[in-house]
Design a protein around this nucleic acid. Structure first.
Lengths: 239, 239
DNA sequence: TCTTTTATAGTCGTGATGACTATTAAAGGG
DNA sequence: CCCTTTAATAGTCATCACGACTATAAAAGA
């Protein structure tokens, strides 16, 4: 931070880009917007925008999250900074440094498109390819991070509505990781971790299903998982 | 990224700040520089500087790492992006967004101070307080991250010279975590993890010690620890 | 009523790990 | 030159977490 007058510094534009995830119909979906102008006009991109003079990147990200999802209250949603992308040529017009965020939504309300980008749409993760700028990489990094954090945090409940069944929670893991989990073992692990979930006392149950109704749970107060809930290893040795 | 012409955007200065760690004499040390000018003149700060027009934040961070440590070759050192700090008031003069990095050094060569900051010094982590700007927080975040990554990565070898004993490796863990570890158990765990370390075949040994000479090891090819090497939990339940 | 479906309960064996004890190989002091 | 100190290395043992199962319960639909 020394040397403000020793080195000239170029002014940068600073933006935020958001990888907004939800689990819909057993598949991981991500919110994309269609670009209306060059460069990459007509291509899909992650929602985002410029950081304004009076706000931090976190504030800008949450503001954009509200604008792009059309939700009126985004204060409780999980939003975390991923990393910053600053390759000199990542925007063909000018020097743009982008702070990337990942957001997790429980339900999947149809995107209505905010003032900034009217054509926002939920897209299955696998279909989100050939995005504008370096957004393919940002999106892949975001998914990697979320998948890894499921192992050692209680983050999975951020994908769930306020009350949920253990089956729904398990489906979050299976969807993000792309692997099947043993149901009794998953149940044992979740219930054995204090503060991960807490039972809804009213013996409530979920309607609509075919089999035995499932008990409802709420997210607990714990934030980390000790010991972690490791995803099954396709190859290699260990536990 | 839409709306380049809809919203005016303020130009930002973009800097990198580095939390450079090493283990020296059984204590975690961090590289600090003394500020020569306002604001915070005379106070200590993390080394860093402006990102230049033709380089990414990663390039700038590695360049600064070389300048501040005085090392001629920093290409092999561990350097990772932490997160970006962008509070509007973090620099009293202007809007500065800083991308923070953590770097790990094996040996602790006395800092010689580069062109940018002549007064770089290794400081015990506990003594690094009241730093300029928001560097107290950056430094704390950096230590948290490094400590957490020791659990599930092979990062600890980045603190060690090319050849090291298991005792030295254990001291890295104990120093960063601030806890004592059981030596036979640590040894069993490290050797049972394939690719963490590999024995130096020449039955080499470390000189200078008092007791039985220790075998030497090199860093292996593995990067992650499965299952992780969890730090002992002071409170609470689990493994 | 019988089958299907899903949630929940429990069992069993193995591997990882915390807490130890024992042995080996050096330095240093008397 | 022995004997103590120091540190590395080699075990042992019990507990716990977890993967792989099997069994039971409670609903919907035929």
């Amino acid at each position: 931070m020394d040397g403000y007058d020793k080195y000239a510094f170029e002014p940068f534009a600073v933006t935020v880009d958001l990888a907004v995830f939800t689990v819909r119909e057993g598949a991981l979906h991500v919110l994309l917007v269609e670009r209306g102008q060059e460069p990459y006009a007509g291509q899909w991109a992650l929602p985002g925008g410029f950081v304004r003079p009076d706000e931090s990147a976190e504030s800008a990200a949450r503001r954009e999250l509200g604008e792009e999802t059309g939700l009126t209250d985004v204060s409780g949603l999980h939003l975390e900074q991923l990393r910053t992308y600053s390759e000199p040529d990542r925007d063909p017009r000018m020097r743009v440094v982008s702070v990337a965020f990942a957001a997790l939504l429980p339900d999947a309300p149809e995107a209505h498109g905010g003032s900034d980008a009217a054509r926002a749409r939920w897209t299955p993760y696998g279909d989100a390819r050939a995005l504008a700028f370096d957004h393919d990489r940002i999106l892949a990094d975001a998914r990697d991070r979320i998948g890894a954090k499921l192992e050692y945090t209680c983050l999975a409940t951020a994908f769930c509505p306020p009350e949920f069944t253990l089956g729904e929670l398990q489906q979050v893991y299976e969807t993000v990781w792309g692997t099947a989990l043993d149901r009794p073992n998953f149940r044992r692990k979740v219930l054995a971790t204090p503060g991960f979930v807490e039972a809804v006392p009213g013996a409530a149950r979920l309607t609509g299903g075919r089999g035995k109704p499932a008990a409802l749970y709420r997210a607990g107060t714990a934030t980390t998982l000790h010991p972690p809930l490791l995803r099954p290893t396709p190859e290699g040795r260990h536990a």
